[in-house]
Design a protein around this nucleic acid. Structure first.
Lengths: 210, 210, 210, 210
DNA sequence: CATGAATGAGGCTTCATTCAT
DNA sequence: TATGAATGAAGCCTCATTCAT
């Protein structure tokens, strides 16, 4: 309140939609699309229902705008992966570590995943976006590295197109945190988790490989 | 239809609540808790709203009863695992194969997972049940096998308490199917998937283990 | 209340939609389509808003159903006109007298005319119905009689297709009553009005016809 | 557009309220009082809602101001009628011709009539104005001419106070155009219409007057 | 004057729930 | 048991109106 009073009208106006989108994120995550009341979103911002409708035509439009707003910061990660150097193992390790930060540790991405799972039925665009911006790029990147590793002799001859399996522990952590959120199942320690994850991924369980 | 006509009236009536639970499953899966209309459930059974309330006090009670109804058949799987014999590797393979059938391939369990993720917030019991009946037993079983494998020298010295990583590809397949349902991302071929999964799990990616 | 309690459920149910249509007529006439509150219609019947929506999907559907409900009893009049006998003058007189009763004196038809004028823009069907059921049949009938009168020599050679002029005093009375409703402009005495109307229609104003 | 660009800012501002009244006329005619949105009126002028409220306190005040604005030009016609000369028949013919132009052919008067019929309930002043400025003067004038015609022997002994009947074809044309607006029922050709109208009015239908 | 963000009362509509039959 | 008419609370959305800039 104090801080906001110093803002000019113009600044306020530019801020409003973002404030609303932030509030919408929290409420939609908490209650799902159907369960969320537009008034609760407004309350969170400190405005009235009507104000929300000044910026967004319908609850549905607000939901979609919110998803778009929070779906951006994945591009950066993909850019970083291009600049990596070192052995394939090193690069794959780096990428999976970054993915862990992005998908499992970042609350926003995590909750976005919840919404994709919960509301995908009613928002097919949501699924397409999610696929094109998240799943496909990651899959492509990991696949490419595996191919490279196999070609260079660093990796064994494993069939490609199953990069899901490689990435699986990350998505699984995300989902378990979504479900239990530190309740019942503790959030794993990142360092320890990655150590075991990579150890298993690269070396396998067996003492003597077949 | 044919079969039902032969039922006596008494049998019909004993069937009602189950028909309602089945219909409730479909609708809650399709629309989520808040988005589902009791009337749509009734329509699916071919009765009127009132009838639903003869058997279930509230929509919430119906939701919980539905979850309970569809959460049963996991016990069997756990029982089977007790009767397995062979090396630890063989037994782990068997169990993971069964889990794949149960979690990734079985539509009911899959959709139950969706509901846990989507509605867990508002139904804490749901999460507790899910933990006690699904996660904990599986985790315990897999952990026990790993401990056994390490003790017997069959497995390398891997830290326990990370059985999530071992099971991850199964849950990941489940979640990807929930999201994409054969749209955009094809459902993997079971045999091929398991082959790669087990190959990676036991042997790791590297040609020469560190 | 007293009387209604004796009705069975089934009778009540059959009555409800008609009660609602009656109430809707009064409210829509009083406030127009946009100005009418569904709740006021419900109040008039003694039920709650929800009940109205049990029978009619939307306010718009209710409006249209109401128009249809009150647009019926015009057919009878047209039937009567077929059975008339006597000179053309006598028959025309009879018909115009009946029309006066139907259009100018009958409150329902009068108010329906108000709605056609006021709401026709937004309900094009309304105008088509009104044309097909009211205007066209009357016009055709009057035209036919004039043609017959001219043919028989009873009437002067007047151009046809201007039966509007013949009927005009009736519609004008309707409209003036709609506007002033006994306020400012008194409702004319029917007998006196018809006498002058017919005198003028048949004989004209001039002492010595041209 | 061209013309407006040459206006000084001061002239522009003096124009504003009239532009708003013009826009209000169109919208109120199109949607009625309750159905019209102040914003649509503003849009039509190319300003924002707030501007409308600079000039008019409420939507209701705007409606009334609009009615007043468009109700003026009838005085002129009445003035003209004073200066006519010739036989009563000639003068009556002239007056009815002018009335036809004013009431049936002039879109503004026609739509004003629609508003009187549609909104009169909620704006009693509207009805009073309409009576005092339109109905009463016309009625008085026509009545006076009939009295004069009867006195001079030009007209038959018809009862006075039924000038409505004489004017009816004009109002009827107005109303039919309001309802059908060239849809379904074609607008009559003015010359032909007036010829038949006057022929009937002065000579009546019958070959041999009674 | 003009703006347009914000308000908040109020209308339409939905739907979980009840209850007399 | 089953019905379905009725309820009424509550949600989405609209829009006349205000006011700081």
């Amino acid at each position: 309140m104090e801080a906001q009073k110093k803002l000019t009208r113009a600044e306020q106006k530019a801020l409003r939609p973002i404030q609303i989108l932030d509030a919408a994120f929290e409420e939609f995550v908490r209650c799902g699309f159907a369960g969320t009341r537009v008034e609760d979103i407004a309350d969170r911002v400190g405005v009235t229902k009507g104000t929300v409708y000044v910026y967004f035509e319908t609850k549905e439009a607000l939901f979609e705008a919110m998803i778009n707003h929070f779906s951006v910061p994945f591009q950066q990660l993909l850019a970083i992966t291009e600049s990596l150097s070192g052995s394939v193992t090193e690069r794959l390790t780096s990428i999976l570590g970054l993915l862990y930060d992005q998908i499992a540790e970042d609350r926003t991405t995590r909750e976005l995943t919840r919404l994709v799972i919960a509301e995908g039925h009613r928002f097919p665009d949501l699924i397409d976006r999610h696929h094109d911006q998240f799943i496909e790029p990651v899959t492509a990147k990991v696949d490419a590295l595996i191919v490279e590793g196999v070609a260079s002799g660093e990796f064994r001859e494993v069939p490609v197109e199953f990069s899901d399996i490689v990435v699986a522990p990350i998505l699984t952590t995300t989902v378990l945190r979504l479900i239990f959120d530190d309740r019942r199942v503790p959030t794993p320690n990142k360092e320890a988790f990655l150590r075991v994850y990579f150890d298993l991924l690269f070396n396998g369980l067996l003492t003597k490989p077949r």
